[in-house]
Simulated scan of single mutants.
Amino acid sequence: MASFIVSLTYIAPIDKVDALLDEHVAWLRAQHAAGHLLGWGRKVPREGGVILARGESREAVEALASQDPFVKGGVARIDVIEWAHGFLDDSIAGLAG
């Protein structure tokens, strides 16, 4: 399994984003329970978010991320970045898969 950073950038006004927030969080939790997502949070300032994911390929993670209600709802775009960790602190060693 490879590790990925999914960067979401809002492309709609924040009230449109907030209208999909509960659905987005439910999707995040479901994907975490399924073992695909390891963590997430908002960017500061609030112009998007970051999701830590793992998957078999960039294409698989892109396909998964495209199902995010923010993306499907047209309020965010995604950029999927694969990364090879050179070092992980013990507190986040789970990212290694």
Rank of each mutant, 00 (worst) to 15 (best):
M1R: 01
S3F: 15
S3Y: 14
F4A: 08
F4S: 00
I5M: 13
I5Y: 04
T9C: 12
Y10P: 00
A12M: 01
P13Y: 10
P13A: 12
P13D: 09
I14F: 15
I14P: 09
D15M: 00
A19G: 08
A19P: 10
L20A: 03
L21R: 13
E23N: 12
E23A: 14
E23W: 08
H24Y: 13
H24V: 10
A26K: 12
R29I: 15
A34W: 05
A34S: 12
A34Q: 10
G35E: 04
G35P: 03
H36S: 02
L38Q: 02
G41H: 00
G41P: 01
K43R: 14
V44A: 13
V44N: 11
V44I: 14
P45L: 13
R46I: 13
R46P: 09
G48I: 08
G49T: 06
G49H: 06
V50H: 04
L52Y: 09
L52P: 04
A53G: 03
R54A: 04
E56Y: 04
R58G: 05
E62A: 07
A63Q: 05
S66I: 00
S66H: 14
S66E: 13
Q67W: 05
D68N: 03
D68Q: 03
V71G: 06
G73E: 04
G73N: 01
G74E: 07
G74T: 06
G74P: 03
V75L: 09
A76G: 08
R77A: 15
I81T: 11
E82F: 11
W83R: 10
F87N: 07
D90W: 12
D90A: 13
I92L: 12
I92M: 14
L95H: 11
